[in-house]
């Protein structure tokens, strides 16, 4: 019951947020002289005839508020983002093609960085100031400092190129749909995953190490030891369980943001996902596509936040969903 009420409330506020984002985007692009807008929508090299055509077709000569009404109507009732002026493709189709690519990069990357970040963080926290801890601290610093495009290029030069030259062709760049085979899909995705995970694993190592060290200093950990539990049970059942909450909330925010586009990784590995296509849309001034991507990215953040809040309530009984 509480969950249903929470969901309804959060979905409604989510829609409110999306409406605000859509409205902001709309006025940013359309509250300008008609000719400027039409030129933007028709493409840079459009002839005066085409521009007049666009103004008629899209109703740009109508009052702004009427256009706004049409815009919201198309967007929220028909999920219609318009058409790319570049090739006339529906923006909805472009987004639908891009989501699996970006999701492949993000989901695999998340799994990888969680495995690495959490295990290194936990080992470091249980042995503070040990050799392992010191080495991992240096590693974290290196991971945080390394720019994604450098790591990506390095992986291509040091792994992809030599392996393929020697006939080992599993590791590839570009995209291969998951539906056509898991193994080749992983081969195409492994380098993007490693690239994405390197920086994020460093963040999560630091986060989980700090959180677990704090938790292990709590009174209830002393109680757990005084109960005669094994050290492993003290650390995992009592310590890690409580240290997980900040990690989960950070994870939700990160996933939401990354689904909006992992620009650099997609660019480096030639994946035409949300990130690369949005950069392209901005570079070419492809207005309908830009608006579509902005709203999709906002929707991911909204959904991720709802999911994080629900996970929070699952993880911590003191949190009530309201």
């Amino acid at each position: 019951m509480a969950l249903a009420r929470f969901l309804v409330r959060r979905v409604l506020t989510g829609i409110l947020v999306l409406w605000l984002v859509a409205t902001g985007t709309f006025f940013l692009f359309f509250a300008r002289p008609v000719l400027v807008v039409a030129r933007g929508l028709a493409g840079r090299a459009a002839s005066p005839q085409v521009i007049q055509q666009v103004i008629r077709d899209l109703g740009l000569d109508q009052p702004l508020m009427v256009q706004y009404g049409h815009f919201l109507n198309r967007l929220f009732l028909h999920l219609d983002f318009g058409y790319s002026y570049y090739n006339g493709e529906s923006v909805k189709t472009i987004i639908a093609q891009d989501i699996p690519i970006t999701a492949s990069v993000v989901v695999g990357g998340v799994v990888l960085w969680l495995i690495v970040g959490l295990s290194v963080g936990i080992i470091s926290a249980t042995r503070p100031r040990s050799l392992f801890d010191r080495v991992s601290t240096v590693g974290v610093l290196a991971g945080l400092s390394a720019p994604t495009f450098v790591i990506g290029e390095l992986l291509i030069i040091a792994i992809f190129v030599p392996l393929n030259q020697h006939g080992f062709s599993w590791i590839q760049t570009g995209y291969y749909p998951l539906s056509q085979g898991v193994i080749p899909w992983m081969g195409h995705m492994i380098l993007p995953w490693v690239t994405l995970a390197t920086v994020q694993a460093a963040v999560y190592t630091r986060l989980s190490r700090g959180s677990l060290i704090d938790t292990l200093g709590e009174d209830y950990i002393r109680t757990a030891r005084a109960k005669g539990l094994s050290e492993r049970r003290v650390v995992f059942r009592h310590g890690v369980r409580a240290a997980l909450t900040p990690v989960v909330s950070q994870l939700g925010v990160d996933i939401g943001g990354l689904l909006g586009g992992v620009v650099v990784v997609e660019q480096v590995f030639g994946l035409s996902g949300l990130g690369q296509d949005s950069v392209q849309a901005i570079a070419t001034g492809n207005l309908p596509v830009i608006i579509g991507f902005v709203i999709v990215a906002a929707a991911f953040v909204v959904v991720a936040n709802i999911v994080v809040d629900m996970c929070y309530a699952l993880l911590d009984p003191r949190v009530r969903l309201t």
Binding site: D219, Y220, A226, K227, G228, H238, R241, A242, L315, D316
Partner: peptide
């Protein structure tokens, strides 16, 4: 020591709010 803790010697700590696991 683990076999003695809790089974032979038990402890009641000062602050029961922080000494019980909140989760």
């Amino acid at each position: 020591m683990r076999r003695i803790r809790g089974e032979q010697i038990a402890v009641v700590f000062q602050d029961p709010l922080t000494s019980l696991h909140p989760l």
